[in-house]
């Protein structure tokens, strides 16, 4: 007959599991999530190709729809860019969570003995990498098509801040939407009203950098972007556990 006390200890902490701090386990889970998303995408190439083709089509359509002179192009550039990023981002967020729903993988993640916010941050980082890759390809293509120089450090920082906020909120809401029957249409309906302040701030700040405004006029929008990112990442950290609960 096995010794019950010893057996309980072995059950609590199986010998095959590393003993380490909770923080190292937390970081390990985040890195494993990012590795998994990148590996799965490297094999399927479904998410990135869909986002990229969609984004290219949007800027091409805008290019033909708006036959603009050089001065007007500069004024519409930030709008076209952020509309493109937002729509392509929604497509990516939907697909990214659909992968988790396929074959019940979301349950597999929820069974892992780590704080569930680690799953959220892992997913956010994966989605952010995909969004930044698409943006890195779209920006030079846009520059060529519209003959506008987009390579301004300030604009790059705004795109980074805007993408972080968009993905932070989008990942949380797509986790909610994926559990609903109408998940395909639900995400944009939930997401766009919430990210409206972020998109307005990103658009205004981008426009300021592209048109060479004074920094005094741009800073308030950049501060708004930073505040939005911090607030929504903190909110998501606190509520993610409840969002994934059945």
């Amino acid at each position: 007959m096995p010794d019950a006390t010893q057996s309980m200890e072995a059950i609590e902490q199986p010998a095959v599991i590393k003993r380490g701090s909770r923080f190292s386990g937390y970081l390990r889970a985040i890195s494993a999530m990012v590795w998994k998303d990148l590996t799965a995408e490297l094999r399927s190439r479904e998410l990135l190709s869909a986002m990229l083709v969609f984004a290219l089509l949007v800027i091409l359509i805008f290019n033909f729809a708006l036959e603009l002179d050089i001065r007007t192009r500069e004024t519409v550039t930030s709008g076209v860019l952020w509309v493109t990023f937002a729509f392509a981002g929604t497509l990516g967020l939907n697909r990214s969570m659909a992968v988790e729903r396929d074959r019940g993988c979301l349950d597999g993640l929820l069974l892992v003995p780590v704080d569930r916010s680690a799953l959220y941050f892992g997913k956010v980082l994966g989605n952010l990498i995909f969004m930044l890759i698409v943006e890195a390809i779209i920006l030079p293509v846009y520059s060529l098509l519209y003959d506008v120089n987009l390579f301004h450090p300030g604009l790059m920082a705004v795109i980074l801040l805007g993408s972080v906020g968009y993905v932070a909120v989008g990942t949380l809401l797509s986790t909610m939407a994926v559990q609903a029957r109408t998940r395909d249409v639900l995400l944009p309906i939930l997401l766009f009203p919430v990210v409206l302040p972020l998109l307005v701030a990103a658009l205004k700040a981008s426009n300021g950098f592209l048109q060479g405004f004074n920094m005094e006029e741009i800073w308030p929008w950049v501060y708004l972007l930073i505040a939005y990112d911090v607030i929504f990442i903190a909110v998501a950290f606190m509520v993610f556990d409840f969002v994934v609960e059945e």
């Binding site: 590393k18 380490g20 590795w35 992968v99 396929d102 019940g104 993988c105 892992v112």
Partner: peptide, 26 residues
């Protein structure tokens, strides 16, 4: 469960590697 909780686009090895890292398997 009756669903495998596995990622279809990943290999057998990659799926187990992912879950092993999540659980901290030595």
């Amino acid at each position: 469960t009756h669903q495998p909780l596995l990622y279809g686009d990943m290999t057998v090895d990659e799926n187990l590697r992912f879950y092993g890292r999540m659980y901290g398997v030595r």
